[in-house]
Computed example of a mutant assay.
Amino acid sequence: MRSVSVCGNGEGYGASDGDAGGAAETEISSLRGPYFDRSVTRNVTALVGRSAYLYCGVRNLGDRPVSWIRHRDLHLLTVGSYTYTSDQRFSTTHSPRTEQWTLQIRFPQIRDSGIYECQIGTNPPIGLPMMLTVVEPVTKIIGGPDLHINYGSTINLTCMVIHSPVPPPSIIWTHNDKEVNYDSPRGGVSVITEKGDVTTSYLLIQKARYTDSGSYKCIPSNANPLSVSVHIMNEKPEAMQRGNQLRIQSYTGLFVMTSIIISFFY
């Protein structure tokens, strides 16, 4: 057995130059005992209904067990690869190559939010707490549920997706349950989507017509769909102009008739 001494500068002696550093590190690591890899994410956000994963990296574990505990009720969830709760949504997988113990929560709900602790069975035990936040993305349409738009103006429908850990991969717009066609002969229809902590999709329809009335639905791929009713108001400009001319003619005729009646009596 090769003996290795370690000096204050971290250099090893009594080994060949090629493996001195690695041997010294192995000796120090084995003397240290089990410890956590603290580079893993300790604040995890998951979507309602989509599996959540908490990753726990352990070094120098040896034959000691790794457990997962839920803090809110101090409930023991798993020990090693065995599940110790009647809630079968919880399970643990172990990757020997990465020395990683992963707690999986299938179909998580808002109530599953809270602190979970990865614990090594030393004496006394040592633990690494992690915070799980389960969110349900929310869809909002500005100005809904009813929008009144003047004939000939631009319809601007603004759909926002909030509380989503990641932007929705896609957002679909429908009009009266048919997907909006941005290349239709009608023309003047476009969409702009800005992704971020809050994802916003703008549906723009120029020169609003009566046929543009109806139900519009914003359908994000990772959130609830939401509808808005669009009502096109006022008459067509040419109809309004003809109507004004008819009213002017009626007022003129009435004025002439009134003048004749007054002249007759006086």
Rank of each mutant, 00 (worst) to 15 (best):
Asn234Ile: 12
Leu77Asn: 03
Glu136Met: 09
Arg64Cys: 07
Pro168Met: 00
Gly49Trp: 06
Gly127Tyr: 10
Tyr202Trp: 11
Met130His: 11
Tyr210Ile: 03
Pro108Met: 02
Val40Asp: 06
Arg32Tyr: 07
Ile69Glu: 00
Leu76Ser: 08
Pro220Met: 06
Asn224Ala: 12
Val138Ile: 13
Cys159Glu: 10
Arg38Met: 12
Ile205Lys: 01
Gly80Tyr: 01
Pro124Val: 06
Pro125Asp: 03
Asp177His: 04
Gly114His: 04
Gly152Trp: 09
Tyr151Pro: 03
Asn9Met: 05
Ile155Cys: 06
Pro137Arg: 11
Val79Leu: 12
Asn9Pro: 10
Tyr84Ile: 02
Pro225Cys: 14
Thr252Leu: 14
Ala46Asn: 00
Lys195His: 11
Pro125Trp: 03
Pro237Leu: 12
Tyr13Asp: 15
Asp146Met: 04
Thr102Lys: 05
Trp173Thr: 06
Glu11Cys: 11
Ala15Met: 12
Ile142Gln: 14
Glu99Gln: 13
Thr200Phe: 01
Leu204Cys: 06
Arg64Trp: 09
Glu235Cys: 10
Gly22Ala: 08
Ile162Gln: 14
Tyr266Ile: 06
Gly14Glu: 15
Ser113Asp: 07
Met240Leu: 08
Ser30Trp: 05
Asn150Gly: 09
Val48Arg: 07
Lys236Ala: 07
Thr174Pro: 00
Met240Pro: 04
Gln206Lys: 12
Arg59Ile: 05
Ser184Phe: 03
Tyr55Arg: 14
Asn224Lys: 10
Ile120Phe: 09
Ala23Gly: 06
Arg70Phe: 09
Leu103Glu: 13
Leu203Arg: 05
Val228Leu: 04
Ile126Met: 03
Ser250Phe: 13
Gly152Thr: 08
Asn181Leu: 10
Leu157Tyr: 12
Gln88Arg: 15
Pro167Ser: 02
Ile172Trp: 02
Leu31Asp: 07
